[in-house]
Design a protein around this nucleic acid. Structure first.
Length: 279
DNA sequence: AGCCAGGTCTTCG
DNA sequence: CGAAGACATGGC
């Protein structure tokens, strides 16, 4: 096991930001986070987090928490947030003030894609519930932590087999089951984990390729680009963002230019703020 | 009972 | 193009 600190990072805000679904609350400041077939334990300090994981997974989790970025330029989150705190629009200022320590994650692309296919017309607790059912039913069992059985996210192969066996029965997926099956099958049949390759294409190219999967529209595709493929300028527009635009911005005066390159971080701040401010 | 949930697909003009 | 309906399921 290895331990390391990530500075200026708030795991409680991250888990409430709607970008990831697989975590387990052990205590108010202590969580297990899951990604693909890996687990780590995270504890919140004042402004930083401590991560504990297997030695071999250290670089995986550093990347997951966007602390180390291969190829791309690293984001100075606090610098960006302070810039947002100076915006002329009050909603942007309030969102940024509320979001100190929040950051984007680099999730596994397949897991992210399936998760956001499930997300359509479901509440966040319902999404989490569906995903956990898929994992415990079709994913590899990782072991026991205290009283919890831990499972990996299913591989494309496991999801293909699972649907052909029982159609994801009892996973509450409804009409999404077929979307998940078709997507998993296409990915399995197209030269292994082609999703990772999308990093090297342009935003427009990768967006178009994701939208070819049935059940993946503009919003889901942008979530996958932003939360798993390093496209930090992707800007998913869901019902909440649309509400924000109606309430706080008159037609097309959103400051896209001012935040060009990191629009996805601003989107995260606004989504997190509108969903959590009253709590 | 009826509406909504981090939408997308199909169909029709 | 843009608008309108359909789509499974569960919670309130």
């Amino acid at each position: 096991m290895v331990r390391f600190i990530i500075k200026n990072c708030n795991i409680i805000k991250i888990k409430d930001s709607g970008q990831c679904f697989r975590f387990l609350e052990l205590f108010y400041d202590s969580f297990l986070f899951f990604s693909k077939d890996k687990v780590c334990k995270v504890r919140q300090l004042e402004d930083d987090i401590i991560v504990r994981c297997e030695d071999k997974d250290k670089s995986y989790w550093l990347y997951y928490f966007d602390e180390v970025v291969y190829g791309n330029k690293e984001v100075d989150y606090e610098e960006f947030r302070l810039k947002c705190c100076n915006d002329s629009n009050q909603f942007i200022r309030d969102s940024a003030k509320f979001s100190k320590g929040l950051r984007l994650l680099n999730q596994n692309p397949f897991e992210c894609l399936i998760s956001f296919i499930i997300s359509q017309r479901k509440s966040i607790p319902a999404i989490r519930d569906c995903i956990e059912k898929l994992c415990s039913k079709y994913g590899d069992r990782l072991g026991l932590y205290e009283t919890y059985d831990l499972y990996a996210f299913p591989t494309p192969e496991q999801l293909v087999e699972g649907y052909e066996k029982d159609g994801y029965k009892d996973c509450s997926l409804g009409y999404r089951a077929e979307y998940i099956y078709n997507t998993s099958r296409e990915i399995l049949n197209s030269d292994k984990e082609c999703l990772e390759c999308l990093r090297i294409f342009t935003y427009e190219e990768s967006l178009a390729m994701l939208k070819k999967y049935k059940g993946v529209g503009d919003k889901v595709a942008n979530c996958v680009l932003l939360y798993s493929l390093g496209f930090k300028n992707a800007f998913p527009k869901d019902v909440w963002i649309n509400r924000i635009f109606e309430l706080y911005f008159s037609d097309s005066d959103f400051p896209y230019d001012r935040y060009e390159g990191l629009l996805g971080v601003l989107q995260l701040y606004m989504f997190y703020y509108i969903r959590n401010k009253s709590i």
